[in-house]
Design a protein around this nucleic acid. Structure first.
Lengths: 237, 237
DNA sequence: GAGTCGCCTTGATCGAGATCAAGGTTTTGC
DNA sequence: GCAAAACCTTGATCTCGATCAAGGCGACTC
């Protein structure tokens, strides 16, 4: 049984159904006929944590899980340049100059479709092109926020900003004043590679935020905050 | 006399003529009728160094000069998140969440046109949407390169990478093995704000690169390199 | 020409975060 | 259930780049 058949036969949320319901990813823009065509062409993948995702021009909706994007220097130093949290849209509409490495941080479920179909639809449908553009602009905006953090924030401001980002992605609608707890989908090494720090500094700063009372470390991977607002104060911006 | 009349009467290179000839900026995508319409709606501006450019939704081709984009933290720490060198295209197709500050580093000549015109043309013309998207993807790619630099490079690698970027923008077609010299359109403060360093470190690292023989500092604002390839080796990537 | 201002360089010292080191905890595999 | 491996924390020390301080240089004013 192929992945494609799987989508058609089972009642699993394929791109069209799940995304249309949620009005996110790409799917808000399509009409019923297009959604049906996409459903046929799409395939659902389950990918275990640690897998590298090919940069092959396919487009995907990230149904669940977290993906990291990385750049490496020649001697192996690594910088994480972005994350994708469900229900983000993945994929680079044109071949960019440098390939980007993408890797699943957690188990990941993807609904992906061939480049040619999206490209054709983008030509028919200015709406879709706009959506892709808007999406890319948001990514650019985020990248620039992190540039400011990497260049100008202290270690503890970086940690606070990172925790706030994860909290926001865990529950975008969360009330700023009420407590929240969430899983960190990353190792200390990944956090360090994102914030331009070492794992020891990450560990120390987390301990400091805990003894401050700013955060509670339920276990190594689970954090709880008294409020978003409180951590926001420590971000420096 | 308004700027608009100025464009029509004088033979100054407005977007359409100059850009079509150069095949850059936005203008490669337009036909003759559209170019004529753009010419009518466009206005040419000369802006002195230090002016802040409004983030008002207009689109512009940067005809000459250099522009910096910045993010500020609440206490005034500044990070430069990008540059535009002529003949880049400026403008953000949709309102993004955070406004971005743009400032002319040198005297700048702009050819700008109202948002509504471009937006309408983008709807008629999938080509144009693609161009905007491609353009934004390139900016994203660059932002991510600088994230890697800010997070993981040493001060001297950052300086080398910066000099290489300026050299490439000064003469994109330059042969990698032959010598090149160029003006730095920035103060030491701006360089520091871009690289996440202090002005003293920038100054010291430039001095070190000079005593290495990697660069020659003709005067404070003019640098010459034996070759692009040589400086490339010192960038760490 | 003297004085002021903006910008840059260089030296001395400091400190945030890196590195080195050791041990603890959690997960995995048999 | 035990051993090994992976991951995390904490302490001691070091270092790169920041900070503090002084002076140089060029442009502009009077």
């Amino acid at each position: 049984m192929t992945a494609r058949q799987d989508v058609q036969q089972a009642d699993v949320p394929a791109i069209c159904k799940s995304c249309e319901a949620r009005q996110d990813g790409l799917c808000g823009a399509f009409n019923a006929r297009q959604l049906a065509e996409l459903a046929k062409a799409s395939s659902r993948h389950e990918v275990p944590a640690g897998t590298e995702l090919p940069d092959d021009g396919t487009y995907s909706n990230l149904l669940s899980g977290v993906v990291k994007l990385t750049r490496n220097l020649s001697d192996g130093r690594q910088q994480i340049v972005g994350f994708h949290f469900a229900p983000d849209f993945l994929g680079r509409p044109f071949e960019a100059k440098k390939p980007i490495r993408a890797e699943a941080l957690t188990n990941v479920a993807l609904c992906s479709f061939p480049k040619v179909i999206i490209d054709r639809m983008a030509n028919e449908m200015p709406e879709l092109g706009r959506l892709l553009l808007k999406h890319t602009l948001n990514e650019l905006d985020e990248a620039r926020d992190w540039m400011a953090a990497l260049g100008r924030k202290t270690a503890s401001e970086k940690l606070a900003s990172f925790l706030l980002m994860v909290a926001r992605n865990t529950d975008p609608a969360h009330h700023p004043a009420s407590p929240i707890s969430f899983d960190l989908p990353l190792t200390r090494t990944d956090i360090a590679d994102f914030l331009g720090l070492t794992i020891e500094t990450v560990s120390r700063e987390l301990s400091r935020l805990r003894s401050d009372g700013t955060i509670r470390i339920v276990n190594k991977r689970q954090i709880s905050l008294a409020s978003m607002a409180q951590i926001e104060e420590r971000c420096g911006d």
